[in-house]
Amino acid sequence: MSEGGAAKGAEQVLPQDGPGAPPRSNGELVFAEPWESRIFGITLALHGQDRFEWPEFQARLIEAIARHEAEIGEGEYQYYACWLEAFRSLATDKGWLDAKALAQLESELADRPAGHDH
């Protein structure tokens, strides 16, 4: 058999390292960035309080993923960016927070000076 076979094929479907790599054991870091774990935890905390039915979130997640996949082209797929967008829309639609206040706080946080002590 020529070089390649199963291992070469695997390179074609998924990258061998980086976030898309197929893991070969059970251990894996599932969150690439701290914010991914925070938004996951927030979503589950509110779900645990029965503040929404999972399909309400799931429908938004499916839409966000479809939009993202249509836009990224060869770019990196960002699952938790879709999750974040889905949760943000759920949170404002449910009235858990005010969309204007959220936009204002986001703008303030973005304008913070870097390396601030606190």
Partner: peptide, 9 residues
């Protein structure tokens, strides 16, 4: 995205 998550929390 980190900022959006922080603002939500």
């Amino acid at each position: 995205r980190a900022i959006r998550a922080e603002a939500l929390e």
